[in-house]
Design a protein around this nucleic acid. Structure first.
Length: 1049
RNA sequence: GGGCUUGUAGCUCAGUUGGUUAGAGCACUGUGCUGAUAACGCAGGGGUCACAGGUUCGAAUCCUGUCAAGCCCA
C-alpha cells in the first residue's frame, strides 16, 4: 500500500528524484495554471546579474523568495513569479575591459563603442547556466523562460517613458555632482571602485591666514590638505555650536590676531604663548567677510564669508574649513544651500585652467608646493607641514583621485521627500526597524538622485540637446515613436544603445542647430527600479497585466538593497504614480563564515553552495537559512551547521515517517482520517498539531519566517520522543482494535499535516512524504504537495488545558527519572511507588488522570500524590517576588523577610487551607494570599526525591523479592531483544528460545514467562541447551548467569 | 564623522509589560533506556547577560556613556 521506506535517508538522491518528478509532471507550471482566475499574489524578482557566478548569498535570497509564493499557492492564490536579469552597468563593462586588457575609457572609444557594447551584451549571460542549474537544484520556483531582461529595446523604451514623465513634471534636471575622479583615466569612479584603492598618503598640511575685510589685523586660520583647491575657495565654514577664540600673538615683531576653534589652540600653538582676547560660539562668525587668497576668477555671486555647517569638526585643523564647492561633496552641498559661486579651476585632465595664470597646465598635485610658496611670499602662510592619512587612489593606475565637480543629471526626488516617507510608512518591513531606521532615515535625508553615468553599456539618457552653445535647447524622448517623429523616419528597428542612438539627430526648433543626445547613460538602479513597468513594456503593451501585477505583495533581498533596489523601486513608483511598489519586504542580513567573519576571496573562506548541496541537500540548506537566525540578522554559515539540520530535524521526521510506513504496511489500517479521538494521547497530539498549524499559519501571514519554521522542529521532536514512544505498543498490538486504528489515523494526520506545513520551506522532503503518504493511497488527491491545500486549523481539536496537562506529565516523569538516578535504581527495576507533589488543584487532577502513563514511564507499581496527612513531609515557602513586589513596591523586601522568618509549617498550612496569612512589619499588618507565596512540599525520609519549583517526585526504593524477580525478567527480555537484533530478524518474526540460567533468574523467568514471550514474540521457551544452529548470547547480571539460544520459528 | 543593527554557556540561539535561582539545543563527561530512530531520558561541569554609571524595593530587560563587530552613508 505504501512504498516501503529505507530507514536511512539519502537526502541528495531523494531530492534528485523529486526534481525529476516535478520536471516530468511539469508541477511548477501546474501550480500557476491550476490557480488561474484565483486572487493574485504578486511577487517581484529583484534581477540578479548573470555575468558572475551565483554564491551562497544568492541561495539565501532565493530560499526566502521561494517560500511565500509556495505558501500563497497552497493558500489558493495565483502566483506568477517572473524572473528577471539585470544586464547593464559597470560590472559588465569591467569584465569586458578585463578580457580586452583595457584600463581606460580612451581604449574603449578607440576600440569602438559599438563593438564594445556588443561584447558586453554577449557577456551578460556568461554564467546563466550555472544560475539556472543552481536555481533549479535549490527548488526556487521562478519563471526564467519568460524572464525580463533589462537590455531589450522594450525594457529601455519603458524606462524612457518613465523618464519623460519625470521630465514633464520638472523632476529631471542637470546640475553639478562631486565625484571621485581619476584624472589619468578621465573617468569618475564608482564607490565600489574607490573602496578598492584606499592607501596611506603623505599630503601637505597647510594653515593659511585669511585676513578679515573689516579688521585687517585679524585673520581666520584655515586648514587644508589640498592647497590646489585654494584658488577655488569661496567661503569658510565654522560649526555653529563650537567655541571659537580670537588669540593674539607675536608675528615678525608685530601683534597679529587669529581666529580658530578653542580646543585646537593647544594643538596648534603647543608651547607658544598666545593671549586669548575673545571667546564665542561659531554662530557669531556667520557672515564675517574675509579677503580672498586669490583673485584669478571673477565671482558673480556673494562669496568670501564665513558660513555655518554642522559637519565641521575639531579633530584636526583649526575648526575653520575652507570651502571649494567644485572639489568637495560637502562643500557643494553648502554652495547649493548658500548659493555660492562654483569655481572650476581644474580641467578634466587634472591640470589648472589657463585663468590660473601662474600654474596653468600644471597637474594640481604638482602645483601644491608652488602654491604654498606663493602664499608664504605674500605672508598668508601660517604653517606648512605634511600629514599621513588614508586617501583614495585609482585602483587601475594608482593616480590619486580628485574630488571633482562634473555636470550630472539628477532626479528631483527631494521634491517628493514627504511623500516618500509617508508611503514608506505603509510598507511592512521585516525586520521592522528598517522602516523607520535605515530606510526611513535615508528617505528623511533624501537628496536628489544622481542619475547619469559617463559610460557605454546601459540605458541611454533620452535627452537631446542643441549643439549651439548659445541655444542649448533640450528635449526628452519618451518613446521610439516620438523619436521617429522627430527625425521623420521609422526607428522601430534601431538598437537603443550607444552608439546607435547617438547617431540620431534633428534640427533644433529654436535655432535650427543640431540636436544631439547628451552622452550619459543612466544609473542601472533606475533600470531595476523600473521593473514593475518595464517588465511588461508598459504602457506600450500589457496595460492589464501591469494593473494586475502592481504593486508587489512581497519582495525580498539582502539589506544592502535598502539604498539599491528597495529605494529605486520606491522612488520611481512614488514619483510616477504616487503609490508603493511593494507592500511587504524581507530584508536579509548577510552571510558570514562559520567563525563569523565575512566571506571573501582574500580570506579563502567562501563556501560554495554546491559543496553543501551535494552533501546535505537543498532542504537542509534552506531549513538552516530559515531557522538559524531571524532573517534580518547576519548568519554564520558552514557545511557542518547545515549538517546539524539533518541530524536534529530531518532524520527525526524521517524516522517517524519510516516507523509509520513500516507498521502501516504490516497492518494495513482501514481508515486514515481522524474523527473524534478518544485516546488521551491522540487528543493531545491533535491539539498540539492544530496549535502548530495555527501558529505557523499566523507566522506565514506575518512574514515571520523564524516562527513559521522553528515550532515545527519542536513539534516533530515531541511527536517522536513522546507521542510515538508512548504509542509504540498500540502499533504492536496483534489486533485491529479501534484504538490501533486511532493511533494510525492520528499519526498519519500528523505526518501529512507536517509535510504540508514544511512544503514552502523544505519542498523536497514535503513532496517525498506527500507522494507516499497521500498520493499512493488516494489517486484523486492533488498531484503534488505544492498543489495541495494549506492545512486548516481545526479549532475543535485545540485543548490548551490538555496541552498543559501533558507538559506537566512530561515534567513529572522527568523528575521521577531524576529521583531514580539519585537513588541509583535503574529503570528496568520496577519500584513500588512514586509520589508527587504539584502546585495547584488543576495539576493534581492532571496527575491523577495520567497515573498509568507516569507509572509506565517510570516503571513503578503505583503513582499517587504526596499527602501531608499521611506522609512524613515538610514544607518550605517562597514568596513570589513578582506578585508581592508589584503589590507592595518598596515594602516588599521587609514583607519577604517577615514571611521567611515565620514558621514554614504554619505558613504552609494556613495558605494551603485557603486562609490569608497575616504578616506584621513594624506597625503595619498585611494579608498575604496563597497566590503570593509558593509552598513546596518535601518528603522527609524513606524516599528518593527530586524537585523543581513546586514540583516534587518521591520514589519508594525498597525492593521486595517480587519486584526483584520482575526486574530480572526485564533484564532477560532486554538480552533476548538484543539477540533478535543481532540475528537481523524482522520486527514481526516469531522465535523459539532455549535458556540455561542460574536458579534465581530461572525462577524469575518462569514467573514472568507470559510477559517475556509476548515481549519477544516467542512461541516456545524451553530450559535446554541451545541447538548448534541457534544464535546464542551469554551474560551475567545481578549475580545471575544466563545463556540464551534463539531460533527463528 | 553620521545612521542602523548586534553583543547572553566552548558553539548556535531563546529570554514576554523589569521580579530576586537567566533557559534550550549542539559539544563534552557519567549514567540509564530502547525491536522506528543516525536516536532518546536523567545528571554534571560550563555565565561578572560586552563594560561603566544611573533609575528602581528589584535590571539581561529601562536610561546615559564607553568598547567591539557588521552593514550603509560621508
Amino acid at each position: 500500500m505504501f512504498k516501503s521506506v529505507n530507514a536511512k535517508l539519502d537526502a541528495p538522491s531523494m531530492e534528485d528524484n523529486v526534481l525529476k518528478m516535478w520536471k516530468k509532471q511539469d508541477i511548477f507550471k501546474k501550480t500557476i495554471e491550476q490557480r488561474m482566475g484565483k486572487p493574485e499574489y504578486v511577487f517581484y524578482e529583484g534581477p540578479p546579474t548573470a555575468n558572475g557566478r551565483p554564491g551562497v548569498h544568492h541561495v539565501l535570497a532565493r530560499a526566502f523568495k521561494d517560500m511565500f509564493p509556495r505558501y500563497k499557492t497552497m493558500r489558493g492564490y495565483h502566483v506568477s513569479r517572473r524572473g528577471g536579469w539585470d544586464t547593464h552597468g559597470l560590472p559588465v563593462e569591467i569584465e569586458v575591459e578585463k578580457q580586452l586588457g583595457f584600463n581606460s575609457k580612451h581604449q574603449i572609444e578607440e576600440y569602438g563603442v559599438d563593438k564594445f557594447n556588443e561584447l558586453c551584451k554577449n557577456s551578460v549571460f556568461t554564467y546563466i547556466q550555472e544560475w539556472e542549474k543552481l536555481t533549479d537544484r535549490i527548488g526556487y520556483w521562478v519563471d526564467l523562460d519568460e524572464a525580463y531582461v533589462t537590455y531589450t529595446n522594450e525594457y529601455i523604451e519603458s524606462v524612457w517613458w518613465i523618464l519623460k514623465n519625470f521630465w514633464e513634471k520638472d523632476l529631471l534636471f542637470k546640475g553639478y555632482k562631486i565625484v571621485p575622479y581619476c584624472p589619468r583615466c578621465g573617468t569618475p569612479l564608482s564607490d565600489h571602485e574607490v573602496a578598492l584603492g584606499y592607501d596611506d598618503a603623505v599630503d601637505p598640511s597647510v594653515f593659511v591666514r585669511m585676513p578679515l575685510v573689516d579688521k585687517p589685523d585679524t585673520s581666520l586660520l584655515v586648514w587644508t590638505t589640498t592647497p590646489w583647491t585654494l584658488p577655488a575657495n569661496v567661503a569658510v565654514a565654522a560649526h555653529p555650536e563650537v567655541e571659537y577664540v580670537t588669540i593674539e600673538r607675536d608675528h615678525n615683531g608685530t601683534k597679529e590676531k587669529l581666529i580658530l576653534a578653542k580646543n585646537l589652540v593647544e594643538k596648534i600653538f603647543k608651547d607658544e604663548e598666545v593671549k586669548v582676547v575673545d571667546t564665542y560660539k561659531g554662530k557669531k562668525l556667520k557672515g564675517v567677510k574675509y579677503k580672498p587668497l586669490f583673485t584669478f576668477m571673477t565671482v558673480d555671486k556673494p562669496a568670501y564669508y564665513v558660513l555655518l555647517a554642522d559637519y565641521v569638526t575639531t579633530e584636526d585643523g583649526s575648526g575653520l574649513v575652507h570651502q571649494a564647492p567644485a572639489f568637495g561633496a560637502e562643500d557643494m552641498e553648502m554652495a547649493k544651500q548658500y548659493d555660492l559661486p562654483i569655481l572650476l579651476t581644474v580641467q578634466p585632465d587634472g591640470t589648472f585652467i589657463p585663468e590660473i595664470t601662474p600654474w596653468r597646465g600644471i597637474f594640481v598635485k604638482d602645483a601644491d608646493p608652488l602654491i604654498i610658496k606663493d602664499l608664504d611670499a605674500r605672508g598668508l602662510l601660517f604653517r606648512a607641514g605634511t600629514i599621513t592619512h588614508t586617501y583614495p587612489f585609482c585602483w587601475r593606475c594608482k593616480t590619486p583621485l580628485l574630488y571633482y565637480a562634473r555636470e550630472s543629471w539628477y532626479i528631483r526626488t527631494s521634491a517628493k521627500k514627504d511623500r516618500l516617507v509617508e508611503l514608506n510608512n505603509t510598507i511592512n518591513w521585516v525586520p521592522e526597524h528598517i522602516k523607520a531606521g535605515r530606510f526611513g532615515n535615508w528617505l528623511e535625508n533624501n537628496i536628489d538622485w544622481s542619475l547619469s553615468r559617463e559610460r557605454y553599456w546601459g540605458t541611454p539618457l533620452p535627452v537631446w540637446e542643441c549643439e549651439n552653445s548659445d541655444c542649448k535647447h533640450r528635449e526628452c524622448m519618451g518613446s521610439v515613436a516620438e523619436l521617429s517623429e522627430k527625425v521623420g523616419r521609422d526607428l522601430t528597428e534601431l538598437d537603443l544603445h550607444r552608439p546607435h542612438v547617438d547617431n540620431v539627430h534633428w534640427k533644433c526648433v529654436d535655432c535650427g542647430g543640431k540636436m544631439t543626445r547628451v552622452k550619459d547613460l543612466i544609473d542601472v538602479w533606475f533600470d531595476s527600479g523600473s521593473m514593475p513597468y518595464a517588465q511588461w513594456h508598459y504602457p506600450f503593451e500589457n496595460q492589464d497585466k501591469f494593473k494586475q501585477q502592481f504593486p508587489a505583495d512581497y519582495i525580498c533581498e539582502a539589506v544592502d538593497q535598502t539604498r539599491g533596489w528597495f529605494y529605486s523601486l520606491h522612488a520611481i513608483s512614488t514619483l510616477l504614480n504616487d503609490d508603493v511598489s511593494f507592500k511587504n519586504v524581507i530584508c536579509l542580513g548577510h552571510i558570514q563564515d562559520g567563525e563569523g567573519r565575512k566571506m571573501s576571496k582574500s580570506l579563502g573562506n567562501i563556501v560554495q553552495p554546491w559543496d553543501v548541496l551535494n552533501v546535505h541537500g537543498a532542504d537542509a540548506l534552506r531549513w538552516y537559512l530559515y531557522t538559524a537566525t531571524p532573517p534580518g540578522q547576519e548568519r554564520r554559515f558552514s557545511s557542518d551547521l547545515v549538517g546539524d539540520v539533518i541530524r536534529s530535524f530531518t532524520l527525526t521526521l524521517w524516522n517517524v515517517y519510516s516507523f509509520f510506513i513500516t507498521y502501516a504496511n504490516l497492518d494495513k489500517p482501514q481508515a486514515l482520517t481522524v474523527t473524534a479521538p478518544t485516546n488521551d494521547l491522540d487528543r493531545w497530539l491533535l491539539s498540539e498539531l492544530n496549535v502548530l498549524v495555527r501558529d505557523v499559519t499566523n507566522a506565514y501571514e506575518n512574514y515571520d519566517v523564524t516562527n513559521a519554521t522553528r515550532p515545527v522542529e519542536k513539534f516533530v521532536e515531541t511527536l517522536s520522543t513522546w507521542y510515538v514512544r508512548r504509542s509504540r505498543r498500540r502499533f504492536w498490538k496483534n489486533d485491529s482494535s479501534a484504538d490501533k486504528q486511532a493511533a494510525y489515523s492520528t499519526l498519519y494526520t500528523a505526518l501529512v499535516t507536517v509535510a504540508k506545513l514544511i512544503a514552502p520551506a523544505m519542498p523536497f522532503l514535503a513532496e517525498e512524504l506527500y507522494q507516499n503518504l497521500v498520493r499512493s493511497v488516494d489517486e484523486t488527491a492533488p498531484e503534488s504537495v505544492h498543489l495541495a491545500e494549506w492545512p486548516q486549523v481545526m479549532e475543535e481539536f485545540i485543548d490548551e488545558s490538555l496541552n498543559r496537562d501533558m507538559n506537566l506529565v512530561m515534567k513529572l516523569v522527568s523528575l521521577g527519572h531524576s529521583a531514580r538516578q539519585k537513588a541509583n535504581r535503574k529503570v528496568r527495576q520496577p519500584l513500588a511507588s512514586a509520589s508527587f507533589s504539584v502546585g495547584t488543584t488543576t495539576e493534581r487532577k492532571a496527575l491523577m488522570n495520567n497515573v498509568d502513563t507516569i507509572a509506565d514511564e517510570l516503571n513503578v507499581k503505583q503513582v499517587r500524590l504526596l499527602d501531608s496527612a499521611t506522609e512524613a513531609v515538610s514544607h518550605t515557602v517562597k514568596p513570589f517576588s513578582k506578585q508581592l513586589g508589584q503589590k507592595y513596591g518598596n515594602k516588599f523586601p521587609a514583607i519577604q523577610k517577615a514571611i521567611l522568618s515565620m514558621n514554614a509549617e504554619v505558613v504552609a498550612s494556613t495558605l494551603m487551607a485557603g486562609q490569608p496569612l497575616e504578616v506584621t512589619v513594624g506597625d503595619e499588618t498585611f494579608q498575604i494570599i496563597s497566590e503570593e507565596v509558593e509552598v513546596k512540599t518535601q518528603a522527609k525520609s524513606g524516599f528518593a526525591v527530586a524537585e523543581d519549583g513546586a514540583y516534587v517526585a518521591a520514589l519508594v526504593t525498597d525492593l521486595t523479592p517480587e519486584l526483584i524477580a520482575e526486574g530480572m525478567a526485564r533484564e532477560f527480555v532486554r538480552r533476548v531483544q538484543d539477540l533478535r537484533k543481532a540475528t537481523d530478524l524482522d520486527v514481526a518474526d516469531r522465535v523459539e528460545l532455549f535458556v540455561e540460567a542460574t536458579a534465581g533468574l530461572r525462577s524469575a523467568i518462569e514467573a514472568h514467562e507470559v510477559y517475556i514471550k509476548a515481549e519477544t514474540l516467542t512461541t516456545k521457551l524451553s530450559f535446554a541447551n541451545p541447538p548448534a544452529n541457534a544464535s546464542v548470547v551469554e551474560d551475567e547480571f545481578e549475580g545471575e548467569k544466563v545463556k540464551v539460544g534463539l531460533l527463528k520459528a
